[in-house]
Design a protein around this nucleic acid. Structure first.
Lengths: 340, 340
DNA sequence: TCAAGTCACTTTAACGTTAAAGTAAATCTG
DNA sequence: CAGATTTACTTTAACGTTAAAGTGACTTGA
């Protein structure tokens, strides 16, 4: 192994002090023309690269963000990470990626690891992490910036948040179905998290706004998985009169619902129109392309990175209160709602 | 901001030397019962956490792997990262994630960044990176381990590799179509990289092995994107007699081919059977579920992590030559091939 | 009983960098 | 032309940790 090139080596070969080399590399003013040139030449000759670890130690800055997401396999989070990566990388920050697998224990462990590694900030995409409030507070207290993605829990943690307008998601989906002339519109709800509840609120609000009847038994308990949507739809199909449209809390649930409809030998959208939410990849390639409510995950990731970097970066303005960025959703009308 | 708890602080409060604290935390033998207990108590009381940056500086080990992939949006690479993450995290290693966007320039920049950050190893998932051989060699020369995923270029770089058996991929797909009774089997090729060429080799080999005629004009130039498959299929549909089966170099191309078939008012698989490769997410939810050849990307990621950690980890055996792990593919028969 | 260990520590130095304070020599100022 | 200022550096200390060498006190062995 060749000896690593350090400032010491450069200084030694030139007969100047290490500090002089450091100053040249940091573009300090108090270095003479000639010396600067000599140092730069040597740096090029030896292919010197600064050691970021040593730098981090003195500067107390790692230029690294920790990213904790619940599930790498879920395209949703990955798209957010893509947005994060683009912004962070452009600003010279690295991303330390962790997966919590929805497990608060693992999440805790990962957060601890990130703290030990002295990351400058943490992006938290976990869907559930009750119980780690203490750690999060501790992190902010030692100056680590935190951004939460699509979460409204941990009210006591002073941090930025980037969220979707979930009520608007429900409103857009439902209003679209009404606009398509449907009047018996059901909702397959998600799990009991704020997230999903707000989508249900939007569903109710849209019906009310347009004066369409809301029947309590048309809101059936579902979930965020395909099987949940399937089961819920089975229940809806058993009711009379039959509903003519369904807004499912997310796309996998909507796909499950479609499967149940086909099994009952009915047609989508002729007999029952379907709208989901989340715009999963390939939704447009399904047997019946799925209408959905979408929002830019890349923007969400980008915003998260910007918030945190503006808070902790060198050019950080004076301290400011917790920010909240809302990413607006929009309707993607495909065939499942008869929208196209 | 509360003062950070360091070994210095602990040593100070107890009136012992910093080294003593360090020894306790590293479970060294030469510390007395009583002292050990006192230190441990203080550590717990102050919630001391070691500073990984300082540790890295002295130990010359960051316990971090760099991961460079071409595209975060592509589920293929993400699944590999998931495999990597699980293994690395379990062994106490962090993952520094970079996206090269298929751009050799950006890749170079990312590799440089990883070097400055003193990562212990690099996992290279980039699809193309001609021109960076020098950097890679330099990295290995300073002791950084490298694993390449699904690549056979850069023959001069001494590193481990984890690849699929692409010829087998082609063989499995083609043999399956033959077994389904098809005899006019076309192949939509991928781009001109070894990867895709080997799949074509497998196609030819399978036909030959089973004595099925191979017509040169049944191999049409495609690509790895949906549009490529669509275009290629258009050409195939213009030929007489019509083919009754197609093996597309990957799933997106297969999906494009199906679209072309439907546009021609033909049926899949009744008129033309289709098999892809790669097993993209949701392939089973398509209008016609897509038959494909799959292999475990998670295993691929896991293997990569194991190879590199066994090479560079503290428990690393004596130096060994470059390893090569082959992940075996298997057929996933769905409806598009009439296989189910 | 005294040299040779052993035990339980401490001291010193180092990892590669930057910040702050120090210092000669050259230059300006009135 | 003496004192103040500027220029172009160097010295010292620090970031938080670990490795290697050192050091007394106490134990062992013949």
């Amino acid at each position: 192994m060749p000896p690593t090139t350090t400032m010491k080596r450069i200084a030694g070969e030139l007969g100047v002090s290490i500090t002089t080399v450091s100053k040249v590399l940091n573009n300090r003013e108090d270095i003479g023309h000639a010396t600067r040139a000599r140092v730069l030449a040597k740096v090029a000759e030896l292919g010197y690269q600064p050691n970021a670890v040593a730098r981090s130690l003195t500067l107390r800055r790692t230029h690294t963000l920790g990213v904790v997401i619940p599930d790498l396999m879920h395209s949703f989070f990955v798209e957010i990470v893509a947005g994060l990566e683009a912004t962070a990388s452009a600003r010279g920050y690295g991303l330390l990626l962790c997966s919590s697998n929805e497990d608060p224990g693992k999440e805790r462990q990962e957060l601890d690891m990130l703290r030990q590694r002295q990351v400058d900030g943490v992006v938290l995409g976990s869907a559930n992490a009750a119980g780690n409030t203490d750690l999060l507070q501790q992190l902010t207290s030692i100056g680590v910036g935190i951004v939460m993605i699509d979460r409204d829990d941990h009210p006591d943690v002073r941090c930025d948040r980037v969220v979707t307008d979930d009520e608007e998601v429900g409103r857009l989906a439902t209003a679209h179905l009404i606009d398509q002339g449907r009047r018996a519109i059901a909702h397959i709800t998600g799990p009991s998290i704020v997230h999903a509840k707000r989508r249900a609120d939007g569903y109710r609000a849209a019906l009310k706004a347009k004066g369409v009847k809301l029947r309590a038994d048309w809101m059936v308990r579902g979930g965020f998985k395909e099987a949940d949507g399937y089961r819920a739809m089975k229940k809806l199909l058993a009711m009379k009169p039959r509903v003519d449209a369904v807004f499912a809390a997310n796309d996998p649930a909507a796909i499950g619902a479609m499967k149940a409809i086909w099994e009952a030998r009915l047609r989508v959208p002729e007999d029952i129109a379907i709208v989901g939410a989340g715009d999963i990849a390939l939704g447009d390639l399904l047997r019946v392309p799925l209408s959905t409510v979408s929002w830019s995950r890349e923007d969400q990731g980008r915003s998260a990175a910007e918030l945190i970097l503006d808070r902790i970066g060198e050019d950080a303005a004076r301290p400011r209160g917790p920010q909240r960025v809302v990413i607006p959703p929009h309707l993607v009308a495909r065939r499942s709602s008869g929208g196209r």
